[in-house]
Design a protein around this nucleic acid. Structure first.
Lengths: 219, 219
DNA sequence: ATCTATATTTCGAGG
DNA sequence: CCTCGAAGTATAGAT
């Protein structure tokens, strides 16, 4: 990893055209060839960047970074204030918890969230247009298709609607009810779901996770 | 801006729980108090970060970054390989061109892209579920609703479908035809649009921009 | 290689 | 302050 602090101006021509007037910035060159330009604010987003794979061509006072799509990033350097390189090695990577996968797992273990008498058929129930997150059979012999999201937005309702249209044409599972489950469900999504006859179930992740140990403790 | 290269492990507890095992990484502390942790790959996204406003509390071997929402980022430092600070000043910021807004503007000036005899009613034509990008009246007295995207995806077609369903219930504008305009239209979006009776119009941004000067030159 | 869905998305506009 | 849509979204996983 190479760290350069320099007074520079930057031009990007690619998916859009962008320009950065002269100022002092951090230029970050990584081992994979990527380049990013940071100002002294915002933790997450660089001012400008070129994602890998890309090639850096360095001439005196001008860096030229290109990729295969024909995008170009040109850094014009007026003055270098710092320039150092460091060996970092490969990163072992991030271990996450709390995303949609875990939510789906927890909900699969707690069918009672969606009503009494439900039995899990399977997670990731396959259909022609993609897998349904959770599929249950209810006491009456019908099915319940559940779409799980962390944030329940209008897109998720549309997605579930498409699944339901398809599933209800399949005599093996029809009739299928739809349930939209999420940690928070946006008002617009709630309205659309109601209009489509889809039930909304808000999920308390911490509460659900809290139930788990009591079950596990039995063994 | 402070640049630290260190062997460290990181724990984040907030919107999710995440852990980074010990490894050598870049710790980036910016003037606004934000902290980000970078590996030697990926230009854009840090491994871990805390966005401003947040507070960094530094003890020997442990950095503790917190924000008002109760999120915590803990960096446990085993060994510091580099530590330097640099004065950058305020960045003048990025100048952009070529986004959806400009595309919409250009298309508003060129109704012929969507057929002969069209007159612009207005941009951002308001409806109960949000504004339609462009609304034209055609020679027959009907209307044309245009959804403009840079990249034409399935979501955009769904969005336009919702607008059309609503608009065609309004006697003031019905009947309304739908047009999906984008620089590139995904095959799936094309199929869905056809199924919904929506026309697809691919837009050449550079060509459209090229027409403008010839019109402007007349004045 | 292409497509799909997610994201600690971030960011900005508008009500 | 919230809500919603856009982003050079980026990125990971599946097909």
């Amino acid at each position: 990893m190479r760290l350069v602090i320099a007074k520079c101006s930057v031009d990007y021509v690619g998916r859009l055209t962008a320009h950065l007037p002269p100022a002092t910035r951090l230029l970050l060159v990584k081992r994979d060839g990527s380049v990013s330009i940071h100002a002294d604010d915002r933790a997450y987003k660089p001012l400008n960047w070129m994602s890998p794979p890309c090639a850096l061509e360095e001439a005196p006072g001008v860096w030229r970074v290109t990729n295969k799509a024909g995008e170009v990033l040109v850094v014009t350097i007026e003055e270098v204030l710092h320039d150092s390189s460091h060996e970092l090695g490969t990163d072992p990577g991030l271990v996450k918890d709390g995303v949609e996968a875990h939510l789906q797992e927890l909900l699969a273990e707690h069918p009672e969230c969606f009503g009494a008498g439900l039995t899990l058929i399977r997670r990731e129930y396959p259909t022609a247009i993609g897998p349904v997150d959770l599929m249950f059979r209810d006491a009456a012999g019908g099915c319940v298709a559940v779409e799980v999201k962390r944030r329940g937005d209008i897109d998720g309702v549309e997605q579930l609607t498409r699944y339901l249209a398809l599933l209800n044409r399949d005599p093996l599972v029809a009739p299928v009810r739809g349930v939209f489950a999420a940690q928070e469900i946006k008002p617009q999504a709630r309205v659309l779901a109601a209009d489509r006859g889809i039930a909304c179930v808000p999920v308390d992740y911490d509460e659900l996770r809290g139930i788990e140990p009591t079950v596990a403790r039995l063994f």
